[in-house]
């Protein structure tokens, strides 16, 4: 199904097509932002006019394991030359995994006018569209962000424990091997940076990439997504959901799917994820 509007999403306006991006390259009210796993990828070529937001260096505090504080986010936004009214379009590699992560962090600071380019970098490349190595420069802006709101879309370990105690819905979006606690074939390296393998008791295993059409990186239709999350896995849209993975990156992709595409109101991302849970003393684990 080519038209995003026809796919039945609850908030179809959070996705834009590659065509839309191509038509808005020169739109001063639009800022295109690339966010990748591989920090070199942007430099090898990107959508003309696109800036880069690197998840390691730009979104995370460099000392404490946490996201930016308000002033740091304002500095980032200023460097990107954006205002609160700027339409941000995130895209990237790995089926927009990091793009969704960046959008989620921007959402914590109240930037609601954010979208994802459906299909991400893969689709743009497959369509033979222009890439450039020229890094754009935008005049720094003045951006006053709200203080970071962790209450709506972010869950901490204690929130998860409380949620667990009430039988709340949990979605483990990692691979089946990570979910089962099977050891990786990496000698001398602990499994996913955690001392224990397995998953949070009661979590449903729904690998994040099931939401994607692998041939072009686009999101599946709402009906197809409901068939996975609701018919097959039994998620109830009106009840709270907490998604997690290893460090909260893949689960931000699932957060995007559940919250925006399927319209779930109460979805949070547990970014401490398995690197916190699997290293915590005394928390319950299931294999």
């Amino acid at each position: 199904m080519d038209s995003i509007k026809d796919r039945g999403y609850s908030h179809s306006n959070v996705l834009v097509s590659t065509d839309w991006v191509a038509e808005n390259l020169a739109n001063p009210n639009v800022r295109i932002i690339e966010s990748n796993e591989d920090q070199l990828l942007y430099k090898t070529g990107h959508i003309p006019g696109a800036v880069e937001v690197d998840w390691v260096n730009d979104l995370n505090d460099q000392l404490v394991r946490d996201y930016l504080q308000q002033s740091q986010f304002e500095e980032l936004a200023s460097n990107l030359g954006i205002s609160k009214d700027t339409t941000l379009v995130f895209y990237g590699d790995k089926n927009n995994w990091w793009a969704a992560y960046a959008l989620w962090v921007f959402r914590l600071f109240g930037h609601t006018n954010s979208k994802i380019m459906d299909g991400g970098r893969l689709k743009w490349e497959k369509e033979g569209r222009e890439l450039t190595r020229e890094v754009p420069s935008y005049k720094p802006s003045s951006y006053e962000a709200q203080s970071r709101d962790d209450s709506s879309y972010r869950a901490f370990r204690d929130d998860v424990l409380k949620h667990l105690g009430t039988g709340g819905q949990l979605v483990d979006v990692r691979s089946p091997e990570e979910f089962s606690g099977e050891r990786l074939h990496m000698p001398d390296y602990p499994n996913e940076g955690a001392l224990r393998g397995g998953h949070i008791p009661g979590a449903k295993s729904i690998p994040w990439a099931r939401a994607i059409n692998p041939e072009n990186g686009t999101f599946k239709t709402a009906d197809e997504l409901r068939a996975i999350y609701e018919d097959e896995k039994g998620l109830k849209p009106n009840e709270e959901v907490i998604a997690y993975c290893r460090i909260g990156e893949r689960s931000s992709h699932t957060w995007f799917v559940l919250h925006y595409l399927l319209g779930y109101d109460k979805v949070r991302n547990y970014d401490g994820s398995w690197t916190e849970w699997g290293n915590s003393v005394g928390v319950p684990i299931e294999k």
Binding site: E37, D38, V56
Partner: peptide, 13 residues
């Protein structure tokens, strides 16, 4: 040193 854990493990592999 600030390479991500996942990428670092793959490259070390």
């Amino acid at each position: 040193r600030n390479i991500s854990m996942g990428k670092g493990q793959g490259l070390m592999g």
